[in-house]
């Protein structure tokens, strides 16, 4: 099926949920409401004509000040059987920064969702092992948010673990061979 046809099928099935369908090149994105995301995803996964068995990618995007809802979670789905793909997006407001986890549908979403939380602070409810993944567990802030600075003027104070490292270095100086 062409991406356009898939998008229309989703629209006909979940009429009130689909907010927007955009196209770029041969790729189509469907912006949906986050409330029924699990339902939509299960439909895409299990429907025999769509059969999106493979979650290519899951990531977040921060549209601070550029769109009405600050975050979006982007799902790239592909059906290996039918060789077609679609992009599903779910808008997430900053105030209610959470969405249902799709780990039960695609096991591979596990680490992607953790990364999405790590980088954007979007919570995924129902995730089996929800914690940071790339950043240290005690890191403050979510680095890929647009209001997170690229380079901090705080220097060494940026991460409190760094101070610990410096202290350890200081403590172990006595073992140094001169």
């Amino acid at each position: 099926m062409t991406p356009r046809a898939i998008a229309e099928l989703i629209q006909s099935k979940f009429k009130p949920e689909v907010a927007e369908i955009t196209e770029f090149g041969d790729q189509v994105s469907v912006l949906v409401n986050k409330t029924r995301i699990l339902e939509i995803m299960s439909f895409l996964r299990n429907s025999s004509e769509l059969y999106f068995d493979y979650l290519t990618d899951l990531c977040g995007v921060d549209y601070q000040g550029r769109k009405n809802e600050r975050f979006e979670v982007v799902y790239h789905l592909r059906s290996i059987l039918h060789n077609h793909c679609i992009r599903i997006k779910a808008a997430i407001p900053e105030k209610d920064c959470k969405i249902d986890s799709v780990v039960r549908i695609w096991a591979g979403a596990n680490w992607h969702e953790r990364e999405c939380f790590d980088m954007y602070g979007i919570s995924f409810t129902g995730h089996p092992d929800f914690r940071r993944i790339l950043m240290p567990d005690d890191w403050e802030g979510h680095p890929l948010r647009k209001d997170y600075p690229l380079k901090s003027d705080l220097g060494e104070a940026e991460w409190k673990g760094f101070k610990e490292v410096l202290e350890t270095v200081e403590r172990n100086k006595k073992y140094e061979v001169r």
């Binding site: 955009t22 770029f24 790729q27 290519t56 990531c59 982007v74 790239h76 992009r87």
Partner: peptide, 28 residues
């Protein structure tokens, strides 16, 4: 760009030796 311009989105995959390497761009 402070105005709300339409965003172009593109996901492009290539087969690198380890598997599928995908780049997803949002262009403003």
């Amino acid at each position: 760009v402070e105005e709300k311009v339409p965003f172009d989105e593109l996901y492009s995959a290539t087969e690198v030796p380890k598997g599928e390497l995908g780049f997803y761009f949002v262009n403003d």
